[in-house]
């Protein structure tokens, strides 16, 4: 004999949709709400993508403008001495050691 606790309990009193028409109505309502929510989600995504394109285009234009300005602005004069002699000769004056002939020829640009 089957144990009493193995028999199904009658829980039909808890059934939320005993009427099939009600189940149909609730299902249709859920489907409509879901389809509308999906459409909103898609359109939000499309809007974000469109904004992202504009933002990317604007960034590229700004970068190009900055690059153009940088390229067209004259650079500051080079502070490095053009001639090594401007540095080397005073150092001979400040130092105690006398320059060798090779040093002098190198400064004059005639080093071998």
């Amino acid at each position: 004999m089957m144990d009493r606790d193995e028999e199904k309990l009658d829980l039909s009193g808890l059934d939320p949709v005993t009427d099939p028409r009600r189940l149909e109505a609730v299902s249709t309502l859920i489907a409509r709400r879901a389809i509308a929510a999906r459409a909103r989600k898609t359109s939000l995504w499309a809007t974000l993508v469109a904004y992202a394109r504009w933002a990317a285009a604007l960034s590229a234009a700004s970068a190009a403008a900055v690059l153009f300005l940088v390229m067209s602005t004259p650079t500051a004069p080079d502070l490095q001495p053009d001639d090594p002699a401007d540095v080397v000769v005073p150092s001979w004056a400040e130092g105690d050691a006398e320059p060798t002939a090779d040093d002098i020829l190198q400064v004059l640009g005639d080093a071998p």
Partner: peptide, 16 residues
């Protein structure tokens, strides 16, 4: 759209 309704119909009670 009909598939959403069918899924809802089939699973409403279980979800409840």
């Amino acid at each position: 759209p009909e598939s959403f309704s069918a899924l809802a119909r089939a699973h409403y009670r279980a979800a409840y």
